[in-house]
C-alpha cells in the first residue's frame, strides 16, 4: 500500500513537472549571466533582456505583435459582447448551435484556417497586408473571447433584466447599469484570452504575414534557426510573463476553476 502510494505520488509529481519544465527552462535560461544557453543559469542577470531590446528584428516583431494583439482585443471584445448578448434571446437549443458556430475557429486546426485565409485574402486584395494579418488574428482569437463573455452572461439571473425594466429602466439603461457591470469579469477575461492568443499565434501569422513584417513569434522562430542564444530565451520569457499576468488577472476576477 505505502509502496504504491509513494509510486503514485512520484508519478504525479513527474507529470506536473512535465507540464511545467519547458516554461521554467525558458525563464531560467533567460536570466543567465553567462554567455551561453545553459541550465541551471550561470549567475543571474538581466543582460539578455537588454540584448533583446538591441535587436531591431525582434523589437520590431514585438511592436507589431503588441499592435495586432491590441486591435484584436478591442475588436473581438466588442463583437463578441454583442454576439453573446444576441445569443441570450435564442432558445436553449439554438444557443447551443450558435455557440458551436461561434467557436468554429477553435475547433478546426489553425493551419487549415490559415490556408483558407491565405487564398481568400489574396483574392480580395488583402494578401500580404497588415490588415489581412489582423483579420486572421481576429478570427482566431474570437472564440476565446466569445466563450468567456457568454459564460459570464449566463451567470446573470434573467430576472434582473425584468427587475430593472419594471423599475423604469430602458433597455440601454439596464445594459449600462446592470448587465455590463455584472459581465465585466467575463469581458476582461475574454480580453486577456484574446490578447494572449493573438500574441502567441504562429501558423496564421506565418502564412498571412505582410511583406517585410514579422510578428514576435515569427521573428523568434527565424532567430532560433541560426542562433541559439539566451536572447531568444529573453524574448520567450516575455510571453511567459504575459501569460502569468493573464492567469493572475483571471484568478483575481473570476477564479481559474470557472475560467477553464
Amino acid at each position: 500500500m505505502t509502496v504504491s502510494r509513494v509510486a503514485g505520488s512520484t508519478l504525479i509529481v513527474l507529470l506536473y513537472g512535465f507540464l511545467l519544465i519547458p516554461l521554467v527552462a525558458v525563464v531560467a535560461a533567460s536570466l543567465t549571466a553567462g554567455d551561453f544557453m545553459r541550465l541551471p543559469p550561470e549567475g543571474l542577470s538581466l543582460r539578455w533582456f537588454a540584448r533583446f531590446f538591441q535587436r531591431g528584428d525582434l523589437v520590431e516583431g514585438l511592436l507589431l505583435s503588441l499592435q495586432i494583439a491590441l486591435v484584436t482585443t478591442l475588436v473581438t471584445g466588442v463583437v463578441a459582447l454583442m454576439a453573446a448578448l444576441a445569443s441570450q434571446s435564442l432558445s436553449r437549443r439554438l444557443a447551443v448551435w450558435f455557440q458551436i458556430g461561434m467557436t468554429l475557429p477553435l475547433l478546426i486546426p489553425e493551419l487549415l484556417t490559415a490556408i483558407g485565409l491565405l487564398f481568400f485574402l489574396y483574392k480580395i486584395g488583402l494578401g500580404k497586408t497588415v490588415l489581412g494579418l489582423q483579420i486572421g488574428h481576429i478570427v482566431m482569437a474570437f472564440p476565446y473571447c466569445y466563450v468567456s463573455i457568454a459564460a459570464a452572461l449566463r451567470q446573470i439571473d434573467p430576472a434582473l433584466d425584468d427587475a430593472s425594466g419594471s423599475l423604469g429602466a430602458s433597455g440601454w439603461q439596464t445594459f449600462r447599469r446592470v448587465t455590463l457591470p455584472l459581465a465585466m469579469p467575463g469581458l476582461v477575461m475574454g480580453a486577456v484570452f484574446a490578447f494572449i492568443t493573438s500574441f502567441d499565434l504562429y501558423t496564421v501569422s506565418l502564412l498571412l504575414k505582410p511583406i517585410g513584417g514579422n510578428t514576435l513569434p515569427l521573428a523568434l522562430f527565424d532567430f532560433l534557426t541560426y542562433e541559439f542564444s539566451p536572447t531568444a530565451a529573453a524574448a520567450a520569457t516575455m510571453s511567459v510573463l504575459l501569460a502569468f499576468v493573464g492567469v493572475a488577472v483571471i484568478q483575481k476576477l473570476v477564479g481559474l476553476q470557472r475560467a477553464f
Binding site: 527552462a25 535560461a29 520567450a236
Partner: peptide
C-alpha cells in the same frame, strides 16, 4: 495545467530545446 495553455506553442517547444 492551465498556464501552459496561455503560452504559445513556439515558446513551449523552445523550452524543450533548452532542456
Amino acid at each position: 495545467v492551465a498556464s501552459p495553455l496561455m503560452i504559445g506553442v513556439l515558446i513551449r517547444n523552445f523550452g524543450w530545446m533548452i532542456v
